[in-house]
Design a protein around this nucleic acid. Structure first.
Length: 857
RNA sequence: GCUCGGGUGGCGGAAUAGGUAGACGCGCAGGACUUAAAAUCCUGUUUUCAGUAAUGAGAGUACGGGUUCGAUUCCCGUCCCGAGCACCA
């Protein structure tokens, strides 16, 4: 036992003790309530952790320890999101196998995490690159492949039920979410070849082969991930990147669009993240309306959210990428249109972004506005996107910015049909009037209606007349699931001689060794060169691998039963541990991991594997810790602070406490090396409550009311603060308590022992050490959280601020039981009050019990 | 451009069912202990004016209004900063 606070010794000793006794190892225990606290597992990068990384880990560790002390059975695991690009890029440069560098990095991460004293159950560690893990990622993919989405039942169902429907009824009333198939009868279906059947089923499988747009870098001969493209140029080398169509696997996330929006209402996430997800899904309500192409039998179908403006539609615009573009174009003008379409197709991302001026060509044809019967010209322009809505719009230049700019550029007519409620429009328009509140005019039967009413009226008319119907569109796209890379999960898919994909029945399909990690140059993954792996008895293997988010979309389920080799987790484990109660991590995953995890959870819920359909009940996004210079912490700026160094100099408890003290968890804030001294001094003072110089000084003397009051106000404050994750103010509560007890020279066990338990979640090592020095044999981390007793906090009098006309002029002490009249009499006779009233009559006397007195004259 | 956050001392930040603004910490200044330093402890620290001082008076939570006995907190408008989306019809 040392009289000095020697954190190095203490922290090493207790970390070893906790590991040896498996203190944080957790098992299913139906006699206790469960709590599941999870950190977003890290990608084990080569540069290790900086002080920003543990911020969220410390917060979740405090909550985990707090819940454990409150009798919960706490699942608090950690693992590694271990597949990904950086390891592969490093392999390309050095030839080192990604599994080797990944293992090295994981070892380093584990060391760093251990130094900080987290209460992880390391027996539950998962690694997404481990075949024992990814065999289940492959199995879940297989489930997606074998299911379709039933729109009327609003859930995923086995493909066999859809096949049965086709076999019995053909394509009629199939209710499946997915592609546009031509109609067929039951007999047709029975006569279809395997390839024909595959082509149809592929349009409904939840994992399916899709034409998707990828980032193609011609100079490097490879497909690039979004994070490798910066401002339309490749991150390495700065070569131009274009969009290219490519066949690859996708997941049909759009089937879940509405449920992904609806589910947000049932979870405790920040409004910011909910808003980001809502915008990303981008649900918009409107109508699809058919416009007849003049002089033909063809129609152009448009999507609009503003059918109220249809009397102002003065032209149509078709996206240049539209497949049947030629049909909407006169023969004479086709060459010009085709030239424009080709140019648009090859336009690089950087051009598109730099240039927002409107370009386009006339197709030579006209469409008939069904409401006015007037012919309007059909144009082609790249400001209309082929993959949103129908790829065709009705342009209303008077009420849409983009249409207005286009009309100006090509001198097309502009007809206003909506005006503000109280004023007239100034004509001619100098910009579009796109506000969604206004009154219709120039619009036949819609005249005088508000925008809202007119939208409804127009849709009703469209549906009655058979020109179209109400329609909901989403910005959300199907999730591209293939990567032309090596370091990822192989697909459990082979293709037979006719090119039909089949599931492999032996899992895992393991990633083979390759000679080179370089991309093949033709857009295929390095796996395509491994011919004895590609060619199997069952057929040719898929050579793409899964994206980084495959393994991370379900890892929180695996922690409940990490070593199960039969199923991804047992029913029993899933039933006990259920949802993640608290999820802590960065907000940068809002439209990636956090959306995909919700999607996979809903899918597994539909299939009955789990009994809840939202993975993370409560989400907290920790802020970033900036460098001392206020910039983002990065090697590039030379402002990185390593937690190992901080722990070596000040100790892990000080690092933990200081990170919490910096400010609200969710805020971004700069690191300040000076500031840590304050926390370090706090631990010195705290230690000296137990030691008087060289001597152990804790006494068993009975505590005074004043001392008990300090303890109980701290219990109350710290408990409430942990519940609301307001850790910075609980740190200050500890400092206040320590200062006050120090002033009173209070060294009483009755006070200090409960105080240690309060401190244990924040500073587990020093708390454990002093706890044992007090003579306790069991760990402090399995003690009982102290309960605060309100009777110690009851005040019987209050020192009221007395204000005259809102300005504080005096202080007066009154019993809380004093009546208003008593107080009023005393206050009005107070000399300062008489002075400030200046003889004016009393207008009003306000007393807020226990708060304030205000005299109004 | 649209959406969502947010503006409080030299700095990080406290305090919002409306009720003494600046808790706690850093930094800074002064002091005690010491031969000296480290460590520790004590005092002061929003700002302006008056006073040797205790103290007193005024201003003050981005800016301008409003509601109220009373506004950092609620409402309206403006400015600034940050984040997300971005030709989504």
């Amino acid at each position: 036992m040392s009289a000095q606070y020697s954190f190095t010794e203490i922290e090493k000793k207790w970390q070893a003790a906790w590991e040896n006794s498996k203190l944080y190892s957790v098992q299913i225990d139906p006699s206790k309530p469960k709590y599941y606290a999870l950190d977003m597992f890290p990608y084990p990068s080569g540069s290790g952790l900086h002080v920003g990384h543990p911020l969220g880990y410390i917060a979740s560790d405090i909550v985990s320890r707090y819940k454990r002390l409150n009798g919960f059975n706490v699942l608090h695991p950690m693992g590694y999101d271990a597949f990904g690009l950086p390891a592969e890029q490093y392999a390309i440069q050095t030839g080192q196998h990604p599994s080797v560098t990944t293992e090295q990095n994981i070892k380093r991460f584990r060391e760093q995490l251990n130094i900080m004293g987290f209460s992880y159950d390391w027996d539950r560690q998962v690694k997404t690159c481990d075949p024992n893990y990814y065999q289940f990622t492959q199995r879940i993919f297989a489930l997606f492949f074998n299911h379709w989405y039933n729109k009327s039942a609003q859930k995923a169902e086995p493909l066999s039920t859809l096949e049965a429907h086709f076999s019995a009824n053909g394509s009629a009333d199939h209710n499946a979410h997915g592609g546009k198939i031509t109609e067929f009868s039951a007999q047709d279906w029975q006569g279809f070849s395997p390839v024909q059947k595959h082509n149809i089923l592929n349009q409904f499988r939840l994992a399916f082969i899709d034409e998707t747009t990828v980032n193609w870098c011609e100079a490097m001969g490879t497909v690039l991930a979004n994070e490798e493209v910066i401002n339309g140029l490749s991150e390495r080398g700065g070569y131009p990147v274009i969009r290219k169509k490519m066949k690859q696997w996708s997941l049909r996330i759009t089937a879940y669009a509405d449920r992904l929006i609806e589910g947000l209402e049932r979870i405790q996430w920040s409004d910011a993240i909910k808003e980001i997800q809502k915008n990303w899904i981008g649900r918009s309500q409107g109508a699809e309306i058919d416009f007849v192409v003049r002089g033909t039998l063809k129609t152009l179908k448009v999507f609009t959210t503003r059918p109220d403006t249809i009397f102002g539609a003065t032209f149509m615009v078709v996206a240049p990428e539209l497949e049947n573009l030629k049909e909407y174009c006169s023969d004479a003008l086709w060459p010009a249109v085709q030239e424009y379409a080709n140019k648009a197709k090859n336009r690089s991302e950087i051009d598109r972004m730099a240039d927002t001026t409107k370009t386009g060509v006339f197709t030579g044809l006209e469409a008939i506005n069904p409401f006015t019967g007037e012919p309007i010209p059909i144009w082609v322009s790249d400001y209309v996107l082929a993959n949103y809505g129908t790829g065709v719009i009705m342009a209303v230049p008077a009420h849409d910015d983009r249409d207005f700019a286009f009309a100006k550029a090509f001198n097309l007519s502009i007809i206003p049909v909506i005006k503000p409620a109280n004023t007239e429009l100034e004509l001619p328009l100098t910009e579009s009037f796109s506000a969604k509140d206004g009154i219709c005019f120039n619009s036949g039967f819609l005249d005088g209606l508000t925008v809202k009413e007119a939208i409804q009226a127009a849709i009703t008319k469209v549906e009655k007349a058979g020109w179209g119907q109400a329609k909901v569109n989403y910005k959300l796209r199907e999730a591209g699931f293939g990567r032309q890379r090596y370091w990822g999960e192989p697909f459990p898919i082979t293709y037979d001689s006719q090119g039909i994909p089949q599931l492999e029945n032996q899992l895992p399909v393991e990633l083979p060794q390759v000679e080179s990690y370089k991309p093949s140059g033709n857009g295929e993954s390095p796996l395509s060169a491994v011919s004895d792996w590609v060619n199997t008895a069952q057929g040719k293997r898929e050579t793409d691998t899964m994206p980084g988010w495959a393994g991370s979309s379900w890892y929180f389920l695996r922690y409940t039963d990490p070593n199960n080799s039969e199923v991804f987790a047992s029913k029993e484990a899933l039933q006990y541990w259920q949802q993640v109660d608290l999820y802590v991590g960065g907000s940068e995953h809002a439209t990636g991991h956090l959306l995909y995890s919700r999607f996979w959870t809903k899918f597994l819920f539909d299939l009955g594997y789990i009994s809840w359909d939202e993975p993370f009940k409560r989400l907290v996004n920790q802020g970033m810790i900036m460098g001392e210079d206020g910039q983002k912490m990065s090697k590039r700026w030379g402002n990185v602070v390593n937690p190992d160094d901080v722990c070596a100099q000040y100790g892990a408890d000080t690092l933990r406490m200081y990170e919490m003290f910096l400010g609200p968890l969710t805020d971004s804030k700069p690191w300040n090396t000076n500031g840590i001294e304050g926390v370090s001094r706090f631990f010195g003072k705290f230690w000296r409550l137990f030691y008087d110089g060289e001597n152990w000084a804790v006494s068993t003397e009975k505590a005074s009311n004043e001392e008990l009051k300090i303890l109980h106000k701290t219990i109350k404050k710290v408990t409430e603060d942990i519940e609301s994750m307001s850790f910075n103010t609980s740190v200050s509560a500890f400092m206040v308590a320590t200062n006050e007890l120090g002033t009173l020279k209070c060294r009483k066990r009755e006070i200090l022992e409960p105080l240690l338990i309060l401190l244990a979640p924040f500073a587990p090592h020093i708390a454990e050490e002093l706890w044992h020095q007090l003579g306790n044999k069991e760990s402090i981390h399995i003690a009982n959280w102290p309960q605060y007793n309100a009777s110690f906090l009851v005040e019987n009098s209050f020192n009221y601020p007395i204000s005259i006309n809102g300005k504080t002029r005096a202080q007066m002490e009154f019993e809380l039981t004093a009546s208003e009249d008593e107080i009023k009499q005393a206050v009005l006779n107070h000399e300062m009050v008489i002075k400030w009233m200046e003889g004016k009559p009393l207008k009003k006397f306000i007393l807020v019990k226990g708060r304030i007195v205000n005299v109004v004259v």
